[in-house]
């Protein structure tokens, strides 16, 4: 990463934890974890609460569909391995690889429910153009997305618009597929804690 403190500046206890993670998982610690554990009182813990609430808290959307949204936002941001990471979690949660790859390759033609498609369009526009209009919202609601469904999806988008920027700015290292799979298993079992 671009800041050495994010790779090597952790407290002694955290370094011990990382050694344990490496020993047990037999993978390097993911940069997203290293960032979250660096001076965690500043960013890591409060952000974890945001992510956990958006991804695992009460929501109109299933865990799988929220992970699908995360993968989709990552894809819109052009972070290929972030897409693989969250697609792997979504696959485990939904048990439907075809649904995920269809959405990630073309949301317009993917065989999904119209409210989900409409919300994904909103998230894409918000992520790409940083703005959505009242007309965009009306279009999503006309497709069947409720106000609550839109709010819950915006919470997912907030988390991944933040994390995506940090991944780019700090230059996270791409992780191997095996490391991402291990991360996906952990996140599905434990959530974003």
């Amino acid at each position: 990463m671009r800041l050495a403190i994010l790779d090597r500046g952790h407290s002694f206890g955290t370094k011990v934890l990382f050694a344990l993670i490496r020993a047990v998982s037999r993978h390097p610690v993911l940069d997203v974890v290293k960032l979250g554990k660096y001076r965690p009182g500043f960013y890591g813990r409060p952000m974890q609460a945001v992510t956990q609430a958006a991804m695992r808290g009460p929501s109109v959307w299933s865990v799988g569909d929220r992970e699908l949204m995360a993968a989709f936002v990552a894809g819109t941001n052009g972070c290929e391995w972030c897409v693989r990471a969250h697609a792997a979690v979504a696959e485990r949660a939904l048990g439907d690889r075809a649904r995920i790859s269809a959405v990630l390759s073309d949301v317009e033609t993917a065989p999904i429910e119209e409210p989900l498609r409409a919300v994904l369009r909103l998230l894409r526009r918000l992520t790409r153009e940083h703005l959505v209009t009242a007309d965009d919202m009306r279009a999503a609601m006309a497709a069947g997305a409720t106000r609550e469904a839109i709010e819950d999806a915006l919470a997912v988008c907030f988390a991944f618009n933040t994390i995506g920027r940090l991944a780019d700015a700090f230059a996270f290292s791409p992780a191997s597929s095996a490391a991402l799979e291990a991360g996906a298993r952990y996140v599905l079992a434990r959530g974003y804690r």
Binding site: H130, D136, C157
Partner: peptide, 11 residues
């Protein structure tokens, strides 16, 4: 946050 707030305002 600005993006989120703008989207909520549009909603």
């Amino acid at each position: 946050t600005r993006q989120y707030d703008a989207a909520l305002a549009a909603l």
